Structures are given as C-alpha cells and as structure tokens.
Computed example of a mutant assay.
Amino acid sequence: MTHPDIKTRLHEYLVYGREALLWKLEGLSEYDLRRPMTPTGTNLLGLVKHLAGTESVYFGLVFGRPFPEDLPWMGEHAETNADMWATPDESRAEILALYERVRAFTDAAIADLPMDATGRVPWWPEERANVTLGQILVHVAMETHRHAGHADVVRELIDGAVGMRVGRENMPETDPNWWADYRNKLEEAAKTAAASS
C-alpha cells in the first residue's frame, strides 16, 4: 500500500478546510453573508476575507515571495480587524475571486517549495519566527479549519445548515424532531449538573 507524502496530505487538509468554509456561503443573501452573528462580529464573508489575507502573507511574505496584489486591510497601519469583515463596497464576487487567486498562489508555493524551505514570520516572537514550509502548512491548515468551524456555527445560526460538506456527510442522519429532542436532553443534563454543583 502506498501512502501520500506528508506534504501532499497536509495540502489535502488545507483544501478540505477551504471547501468546508466556502460551501457555508452558498445560497445566502448579501445580508446573511455579512451580518455579525457573535458579540465579536464573526461573519461568513469576513472569514473568507481573513483567510485570503492569511494565506497571502504566510505563503508569500514569509518565504520572500510576496503576493502580487496589495491588500491594504492586511497592512501594518490597517484598522483593527479590517480583515474580518467586508465593507459595503467590497462585493461578494470580489472577495471570493480574491480568495481563489490567493489559493492558486498558495498552491503554487506549496508545489514549488520543499517542506524544509525556510522562511521568517516577522510578527511572531523571535524564538519562533524562523519557520519551514512544513510548519506554515500545518499552521495555515489549522487556521483554516478553525475558521471553517466558526463558519459552521454561524451558518447554523443563520438557517440551520450544518455539516462539513453539502449533504451533511459528517452528521447523523436524523430529522429536525430528533435534533430538538437531543438539544432538550442536553439542556436538561446541563440544568441537572448545575443544580448538583
């Protein structure tokens, strides 16, 4: 049995995370894509914008191969959290197209560089700033899956859509009544535990 090399496997995990995130935007209105769904403002289009910026710097600047487009919201003097939301003049199509270009840029860097290629993350603490492609691939894949998880929760709050992929491949095959009963069971368990503590 042959196994894919670790670089291929890590790249696959990054791709899976991207796909999980992107399907969370499908079929939603402009408002639902942008509206803040948590007290800290988490929103779906902002997560995509953030990850576009993240990939552009980690696979570009860090390895001396800057992304060829200026992303002012990733600059040193950008407004705090400017990468976490879409302004009214930034369209869904523009942000998704940017993410597509950044993904192609990242994929080329992963293909071109060996796993032990060295880079430097200037915003990390000095003792960890020198990195390899392997470390950055793990870091960005984890970051992507983390934000795909945020998107899971946000999308469920918007319209109840859940799961890793279209068709809910990683969710139990049940109906809404089952989920309501399940949630009620958890609520009762929480109340019982709180009362006995």
Rank of each mutant, 00 (worst) to 15 (best):
R165K: 12
Y58G: 04
D159K: 14
L44D: 05
V131R: 15
V166R: 15
Q135G: 13
V48T: 13
D152M: 07
H139Y: 10
H147T: 08
R183S: 10
N170Y: 08
A151L: 09
K49G: 01
G64S: 11
L45R: 06
V138A: 04
T192H: 03
W85T: 04
P125L: 04
E187V: 09
L10E: 06
R103P: 07
V121P: 02
E188D: 12
R168V: 02
L157K: 07
N177Y: 06
N184Q: 14
D107Q: 10
K24W: 02
V102Q: 00
A195F: 02
R65M: 08
P66V: 00
R183N: 12
L96A: 05
A194G: 08
D107S: 14
P125D: 12
D89I: 00
T42Y: 00
A20V: 03
D83T: 08
A109H: 00
L113Q: 06
A117Q: 07
L186K: 07
E127G: 05
K185A: 07
H50V: 11
A108H: 07
L51R: 11
A129E: 00
E188V: 13
G46P: 13
K24R: 05
N184G: 14
E100K: 06
E19Q: 15
L61A: 10
T8V: 03
E188N: 09
V140Q: 04
P68Q: 02
L22V: 04
L113T: 05
D159N: 15
A193F: 12
H50G: 08
E12N: 11
R146V: 00
D112F: 02
R168M: 13
E19H: 12
A161H: 15
G149C: 07
A20S: 08
E12M: 13
R120H: 06
P39V: 15
E187P: 03
A111W: 00
L47S: 12
R103F: 05
W124F: 08
M74Q: 11
E100R: 08
E26T: 11
R92A: 03
D152R: 07
P68G: 06
P114N: 11
P88F: 04
L137E: 10
V138C: 04
N130I: 08
I6F: 01
T8D: 05
T174I: 09
G17I: 01
Y16E: 15
I158L: 15
G167Q: 08
L14K: 04
L98T: 08
R120E: 07
I110E: 01
W123C: 04
W23E: 15
L51Q: 12
F105S: 05
W123Q: 13
P114T: 14
A78I: 10
R165I: 04
D89R: 10
A189G: 07
L14H: 07
R128F: 08
S91E: 10
P125R: 10
G134P: 02
M142W: 15
A190W: 01
T8F: 01
G53N: 12
L22R: 06
Y13A: 11
S197V: 11
E169A: 06
V140G: 05
I110T: 03
R101T: 15
L98Y: 02
A111T: 02
H3M: 05
L28S: 10
